[in-house]
Simulated scan of single mutants.
Amino acid sequence: MLKVENLSVHYGMIQAINNVSFEVNEGEIVSLIGANGAGKSTTLRTISGLERASSGQITYLNEPIHTISAKKIVEKGIAHVPEGRHVFKGMSVQENLDLGAFLRKDKDGIQKDLKMVFERFPILEQRKNQDASTLSGGEQQMLAMGRALMTRPKLLLLDEPSMGLAPIFIREIFNIIQDIQRLGTTVLLIEQNANVALSISDRGYVLESGKVVLSGTGQELLASEEVQKAYLGG
């Protein structure tokens, strides 16, 4: 579904990603794990068109997408939930969700998906007229994910969905990610909580200093002595 080949990205003279290659198959949850500054967020931002590659190629459904606009990438079925959630302050929960469907014309489908989002995140329906910025951190994360689902994505990019959340919300968010996969959406996940991320992932890749240094199934990486020492406190 998604293939990243020899991807390099620079911020001025600084190389954030160095010849990164990986792929995501349809229906999978794939995790990118690594320390802060490893290049994980830059990788996601480049896939979604927010950053430009210095070299390399990104192919989605057999089409190159590394040279097209972020808007066109969304139209092709890729939704990105960035780190920090970024809900729209001064707009209600309902208005934030409506913006997720901005590019869609299928009114019946939009209403169906809105109902699905409210079923998955009941607190959002209860607070649909509330300013999004007044929600708790966990509720804002649910809203950001719900807004992305309103685009009806084939591929969902999630950047640190558990950051700053209480343990009860973390469990809930990861249960929802698995539900999203079961309903047919492919997920590419960045997560500092490597233990939880790998436990729900079909496969994973470890990034260090902008390079992929390890890959395997989620269970293989969980069992890896190297991963345990570096990321799992083993």
Rank of each mutant, 00 (worst) to 15 (best):
K40S: 03
L61H: 14
A197D: 09
V4H: 12
E28Q: 15
I170A: 00
Q130A: 11
L198F: 04
E75T: 11
T151C: 08
E51T: 08
T186A: 07
I73R: 11
Q192G: 00
R152D: 12
I168S: 14
N175A: 14
L221E: 03
F169V: 15
G37M: 10
A144N: 08
S8I: 04
S215I: 09
M163S: 13
I47H: 03
L97T: 10
I29C: 05
A38L: 01
V74Q: 01
L188S: 02
A197I: 06
Q15D: 06
S8Q: 06
S55V: 05
S201D: 02
A230S: 14
K107V: 10
I180E: 00
E208R: 13
L99T: 14
Q140P: 11
K76F: 05
I78P: 10
K154S: 09
S92R: 11
K211E: 14
F88W: 12
F118W: 14
A79P: 06
G216R: 06
G77D: 04
V24T: 03
K128G: 09
Q141N: 05
F118Y: 15
N36M: 05
N6D: 14
E225V: 14
N6C: 11
L97F: 06
E63T: 13
N25F: 06
L135E: 00
T217S: 13
L188V: 00
Q94D: 12
G37S: 08
S69I: 04
V74S: 05
I177S: 02
G100I: 11
K71G: 10
R85L: 05
I29H: 04
S41V: 01
G164Q: 02
N129L: 12
G204M: 01
R171S: 14
T46F: 03
S199Q: 09
D106E: 12
Q228W: 06
K112P: 01
G164D: 06
T59N: 15
L183E: 15
V187T: 08
G39H: 03
Q130D: 09
P153M: 13
Q111C: 05
T134H: 01
Q126W: 09
F88A: 12
L157H: 06
G84A: 01
P167G: 12
I65T: 04
T42C: 11
I110A: 13
T43G: 01
M13C: 10
I190H: 03
S133E: 13
L7R: 02
E220T: 07
V81M: 10
H66A: 07
M1C: 06
I65Q: 07
D108Q: 14
M145F: 09
E119I: 10
I17P: 08
P167T: 13
F22E: 09
T151P: 07
E63A: 12
N193H: 12
G146K: 09
L188Q: 04
K76I: 02
F169T: 03
L214G: 10
L156T: 01
I65R: 07
